[in-house]
Amino acid sequence: LSQDQINEYKECFSLYDKQQRGKIKATDLMVAMRCLGASPTPGEVQRHLQTHGIDGNGELDFSTFLTIMHMQIKQE
């Protein structure tokens, strides 16, 4: 990932990090990914979360979000 991409991801991540705690809700993951041009299915989002041990009510930090985005873009 280039620095530009990382900055773009950070900007989008921040939109969903409403309390500015450095985390977004798992329920916002799909929308955040789509905001960056990825098109994950609900099943793919579920798999990404399970891979990282996050349940549907959990939260993920930016580095986890980056990893998930990277995996998603590689497979699209």
Rank of each mutant, 00 (worst) to 15 (best):
K25M: 13
K10N: 09
S2T: 15
G53S: 05
I6F: 09
I68W: 00
M33W: 01
G37Y: 04
K25W: 09
Q19P: 08
C35G: 14
T64I: 08
L36V: 12
M30L: 11
Q20L: 07
G56W: 06
L36E: 02
T27Q: 11
D17K: 02
G37T: 04
N7E: 09
K18S: 10
L36F: 05
G43P: 12
D28F: 07
L66E: 13
Q5L: 12
N57A: 13
M71S: 02
E11L: 07
D4P: 05
S14C: 06
K25Y: 13
K18Y: 09
Q20D: 06
Q46H: 08
K25H: 14
A38D: 06
R21S: 12
F13G: 00
T27M: 12
Q5W: 06
G43H: 15
A26L: 03
I6L: 12
Q5M: 14
E76L: 09
D28N: 08
C35V: 11
E59P: 02
K74R: 03
L66A: 15
N57Q: 15
F13D: 00
Q5T: 13
S2C: 07
L1W: 04
T27K: 10
H48N: 07
G58C: 10
S63L: 07
D4W: 01
E76Y: 10
K23G: 03
L36K: 07
G58F: 04
V45A: 07
R34S: 13
N7R: 12
D61P: 14
M69C: 12
Q20V: 05
Y16L: 09
M69D: 00
N7V: 09
K25T: 10
E44Q: 02
I68D: 00
D28Q: 08
N57T: 13
D17W: 01
N57Y: 03
R21N: 14
K23I: 08
H52Y: 06
K25C: 11
S2M: 11
D4N: 08
S63R: 05
Y9W: 14
Q3V: 05
K23Y: 09
L15C: 12
R47G: 01
M30F: 08
T27L: 11
F13C: 01
E44G: 04
S14D: 09
A32E: 00
V31K: 09
G22H: 04
F62P: 01
E8H: 10
L15T: 11
G22I: 00
S2Q: 07
L36H: 04
L1A: 07
L49S: 03
S39H: 15
C12E: 04
A38M: 14
G37I: 01
E44S: 15
R34F: 07
G58V: 04
S14E: 09
M69S: 10
T67I: 05
T41I: 11
G56C: 09
A38Y: 14
Q3G: 09
K23Q: 11
R34C: 14
T27R: 12
G43W: 10
G56N: 04
Y16K: 03
D4G: 04
L60H: 00
T51N: 02
Q3P: 08
G43N: 14
E76W: 08
K25F: 12
Y9H: 06
V45Q: 05
S39W: 08
E8F: 06
M33Q: 01
S2N: 15
R34K: 13
S63W: 13
I6S: 08
M33H: 00
G43C: 07
I68N: 00
D28I: 03
S2W: 05
L49G: 01
E8Y: 11
C35P: 04
V45M: 02
C35S: 13
P42V: 07
I24N: 01
R21H: 08
E11D: 13
L15D: 11
L1K: 09
Q19K: 13
L29D: 00
S14I: 05
D55V: 01
M69Y: 06
R21T: 11
L1F: 15
A32P: 02
K23H: 10
D4I: 10
E8R: 13
I24Q: 00
S39T: 05
G58K: 12
V31N: 13
A32T: 10
A32N: 01
M30V: 13
G43L: 10
T27P: 09
S39A: 12
